[in-house]
Design a binder for these strands. Structure first.
Length: 591
DNA sequence: GCCGTTTTCGGCCCGACTGTTTTCAGTCG
């Protein structure tokens, strides 16, 4: 017989919990960008193309899941850059998992043409010509056509175009560089430029100045009476391997590791306007220039103009003032709400390095660190910290000589002894405990309960289905002895397409159980990215900025974590380790 | 396709550089 099923009502419905199959924001944004590319190849109206790109950007920077919004019946037209048409298309995409328009476009335009589009120097017009005139629909065909001379014979193409295609065809990538790697290339160049005669100001701009965690290329702005000196100096620099283009005010070079650098030379009185212009982001600049238009002003890299008269531009403050805004920190210039916040007088007072009082993730010689507990503590004290946590690896990380229960207890005893004899800094007994493949923890509850600070992390089994990964994270969050999830996304996103992990569910659980999330400043990988850190913060989850230092030198990386926190709009009060030790410990759940 | 303190049409940011042209289109940031 049939049982009457009671209506299934979850015990508690979180607003952030979503269906497990829900399509994630990055996937949606990617589809919109594909539509834009394909429309462009078809020669569609460029403003229509831009509308799709703008919508994609809106979705990328949402701090909540679009699928959840659809599920809750929210009006997508409230979102910027989403109108009636796109709201309908996106709703259908969320419900059906596919964007019909994209599928239709892919039937008309061979998908390989999108690869042709990625080659430096080839845009939609040229890619379309190659496809329609020569039947080029993938990179192999392109190479053959360039080599045979077919490309050079096309109208609007020539010998140089064909050569450029062959030179760039193996260099198709959207590669981005970690900020630290970019810094190591940039610093020596800045130093050389600053030392050169005839150059006044030298400043990095672009995404580097906006302190993005990765950069696609570098931008350097120089003021000088004559641009030749600056350009020659750059061209002669030992880490510059090739000059890609060079004009009177603008030059682009390739550096040793394939990172590219733009140099712009502007006159002194344009410095502020140029800094603003070249710092971007593009989306931010578009908004500023539009505000200028509304006030009958023209804004470019040389200044703010009313008619032919320059009315501002020596400083960034002047540029913002001309469009009735106060100065906006570079980290916020992404058109992610900074204009609205500035108008409402609600720009956040961003966190500073000096606000940080504790560092709660570091290693010692007990596992894979280079320095002792005492050395780490002394170095942290020198940096002005009031407290630290020593968090060596647990035993599963055998290649890092991870600690089992017995060694951990001995390690913690040593911390007690050092604490008793150290002044001016407090050392917490911590552990970076692995979340194993079966969703249990690497150390049992009894020993974990004896510590002050337990960070749970994923190191292994990251190729498991995302459902199992989520199960492991949730199990760790629900363990009463766990205080924080360490580098929450870094290790996952390294191995997996980010679209698969449902952070809505993850955040909801962390919030519910009072578990902190870590922004990890370790330089060798990406971590909780800025959009998600902002989302976590909006969900009311305290964040902790740590260095994951493996030596006393590694403690210097706190700045990188703070940089990222600033990009996430975080203020002092959003970050737990800006508190005194006593206040910090009050935040931790009692186990 | 989006948007609106010139609001339902008619706009949509702006300039530098390259390679192809012979005055400019395409690409890029």
């Amino acid at each position: 017989m049939m049982w009457l099923m009671p209506e299934i009502v979850p015990a508690r419905v979180s607003p952030y919990r979503s269906r497990r199959s829900a399509v994630q924001n990055p996937t949606i944004a990617e589809k919109l960008n594909d539509v834009a590319d394909l429309l462009e190849l078809e020669g569609a109206n460029s403003f229509r193309v831009r509308a799709y790109r703008n919508a994609a950007r809106t979705i990328e920077s949402l701090t909540q899941s679009l699928s959840d919004m659809v599920e809750r019946g929210e009006d997508l037209e409230e979102l910027p850059n989403i109108g009636k048409d796109l709201a309908e298309k996106l709703t259908a995409l969320v419900n059906e998992g596919e964007l019909k328009q994209l599928q239709e476009l892919k039937q008309r335009v061979p998908p390989g043409v999108l690869d042709v589009l990625r080659i430096d120097g080839l845009g939609p017009k040229k890619a379309a010509t190659l496809w329609k005139e020569l039947g080029v629909t993938d990179l192999d065909q392109l190479q053959a056509a360039a080599e045979s001379g077919d490309v050079a014979s096309l109208k609007g193409f020539g010998k140089k175009t064909a050569e450029k295609i062959l030179a760039n065809i193996d260099r198709v990538s959207d590669r981005r560089f970690l900020r630290v790697d970019a810094r190591n290339m940039l610093e020596p160049i800045l130093e050389t430029l600053r030392a050169a005669d005839g150059i006044d100001q030298v400043s990095p701009a672009g995404s580097y100045r906006r302190r993005r965690e990765t950069v696609g290329d570098l931008d350097v702005l120089v003021t000088a009476k004559e641009s030749k000196v600056a350009m020659d100096t750059l061209a002669d620099h030992e880490i510059v391997v090739e000059t890609l283009s060079r004009g009177d005010t603008k030059m682009r070079v390739r550096l040793e590791n394939d990172l590219e650098l733009d140099l712009r030379v502007v006159p002194e009185q344009s410095y502020g306007a140029a800094m603003h212009y070249f710092t971007g982001s593009k989306a931010h600049n578009v908004r500023v220039r539009r505000r200028g238009q509304e006030r009958d002003l023209k804004i470019n890299e040389y200044g703010v103009f009313r008619g032919d008269e320059r009315i501002a531009g020596a400083t960034e403050e002047e540029v913002f003032e001309a469009v009735d805004l106060r100065w906006i920190p570079p980290e916020l210039r992404e058109d992610r709400g900074e204009f609205e916040a500035a108008e409402a007088g609600e720009l956040p007072d961003l966190i500073e390095l000096s606000d940080i009082r504790g560092d709660l993730h570091m290693h010692t010689t007990a596992s894979d660190g280079k320095n002792s507990i005492r050395e780490m503590a002394e170095a942290a004290k020198q940096r002005g910290l009031d407290y630290i946590a020593i968090t060596d690896h647990s035993k599963r990380v055998s290649m890092a000589n991870g600690l089992d229960a017995k060694r951990l207890r001995k390690h913690w005893k040593e911390i007690d002894e050092i604490n008793a004899d150290l002044d001016g800094i407090e050392v917490l007994k911590g552990i970076e405990c692995d979340i194993l493949e079966d969703a249990t923890l690497d150390l049992d509850d009894e020993v974990l309960s004896e510590g002050d600070w337990v960070i749970a992390v994923l190191h292994y089994g990251l190729k498991q289905p995302s459902k199992q990964i989520m199960k492991r994270l949730l199990a760790a969050i629900e363990n009463p002895h766990v205080h924080a999830i360490g580098h929450p996304t870094g290790r996952i996103l390294e191995k997996r397409p980010e679209a698969e992990i449902d952070f809505g569910e993850f955040f909801a659980a962390a919030k519910e159980h009072g578990v902190l999330l870590e922004i990890n400043a370790g330089p060798e990988r990406l971590d909780l990215d800025d959009v998600r850190a902002k989302a976590a913060c909006e969900h009311g989850i305290p964040l902790v900025i740590n260095t994951d230092a493996h030596s006393t030198r590694g403690l210097a990386n706190m700045q990188l974590g703070v940089d990222q926190a600033r990009r996430s709009w975080l203020t002092k009060s959003d970050v737990a380790n800006t508190r005194t030790l006593k206040q910090f410990q009050k935040l931790l759940r009692k186990s």
